[in-house]
Design a binder for these strands. Sequence first.
DNA 1: TGCAAAACTGTACCCTCGGTCTAGTAATAT
DNA 2: ATATTACTAGACCGAGGGTACAGTTTTGCA
Lengths: 208, 208
Amino acid sequence: MSATTKSKGEMTRDRILEIAESAVLAKGFSNTSIDEIIAEAELTKSGFFYHFRDKTELARALLSRSFEQDDIILGGIFERARELSDDPLHAFLVGLRMLAETMGNMDKAHPGCMVATVTYHDKQFNDDIRTMNRNGMVRWRALFLSFLVEIVQTYPPRADVDVDALADMLSVTVEGGIILSKVFDDPKVLADQIMQYRTFIRLLFQGN
Amino acid sequence: MSATTKSKGEMTRDRILEIAESAVLAKGFSNTSIDEIIAEAELTKSGFFYHFRDKTELARALLSRSFEQDDIILGGIFERARELSDDPLHAFLVGLRMLAETMGNMDKAHPGCMVATVTYHDKQFNDDIRTMNRNGMVRWRALFLSFLVEIVQTYPPRADVDVDALADMLSVTVEGGIILSKVFDDPKVLADQIMQYRTFIRLLFQGN
DNA sequence: TGCAAAACTGTACCCTCGGTCTAGTAATAT
DNA sequence: ATATTACTAGACCGAGGGTACAGTTTTGCA
């Protein structure tokens, strides 16, 4: 067997996660029952609990899965952006444009949706989730910060800024943008907001 | 009896809402049981269902309550801001600073928390909530827009901007800022982000 | 002061859902 | 072949949301 081959158990687990993911995204976590998942996955309750200790472990698995996907997407975008320009400001601006386009094309299943649907499940759980969430945010901040620290060396900012807050501002824009996009049922809102952030960056370091 | 006197029924209903609010904010909606609420309110299950058709109606009531409170706080802040300056830009900047301060001083129970805890409860419910949420957002947008349209008349913007998106950007900042504040367990994050938005506005219309 | 409406209590019951336990069986890897 | 993995079968439990309905108290008001 090759290294990429999955065992029967792993395949079943993946199938459960796949089914659970779409159900949770469509109806929310607490409104997705185990019975429903196992019916679609064609296995028994015992089978489900063979793979997951309890429903909370399912939530955790769902969440770490979505974080991995986010990291890949985000990392890919800004890696390409760096390749396209040696100048950190230009690269960041290019990355932001690509991010806006990517987000604008997602009709459902925005990264971050899983966070929102799952976060408020229960108290004990929240502590675990907050830690995972924080790790995710810290990775984002680090990524954006790597651009910003380079940028401020070359381009004197037009106003007093805290680069940390400026890096977080992009996370804020994405998270808040997702909420407004859902509320208005329009993915364009998120894309527009990322472009607003881009305008701020341009104005701050380039003056136009 | 004066017009402000509440009937016995209204008082009981308010008591339920009060108890439910703190419980939901502390532990989440699905983790707050009706049994628990009625125990603290010292009434029976039948008594509860006399006031609320089901748990979803409780959620709705909780939500519209928090919207009302938000409107009062937000409206109050920007009304005072207008009083303090005839210039729309200065007034807006003052309002933003007051908003940042107000938000930074809230340790828990940010406006918007109730939205998050309650929104993903169930599918049917989500549609109702989205409408309420949208109305809330539209009111915010209108409020912020009333400043921005005045501002652009006096101050030519340093970059191409869409005032609608700019108005929404503040909602985005607040909603996203709340998420990051919760994740990092630090209300200062939200305050900082509002100040970042303020910097953007200053830079855009005042150039520094 | 009396009477209807409002605001409940009490009890019994049903369903769904998360979760546990035990015992047994089929598939698979080595 | 055999131990481990990956399940099935089925009985059961408690919490929680919700219903039905009959009865009782409390309140506002003419």
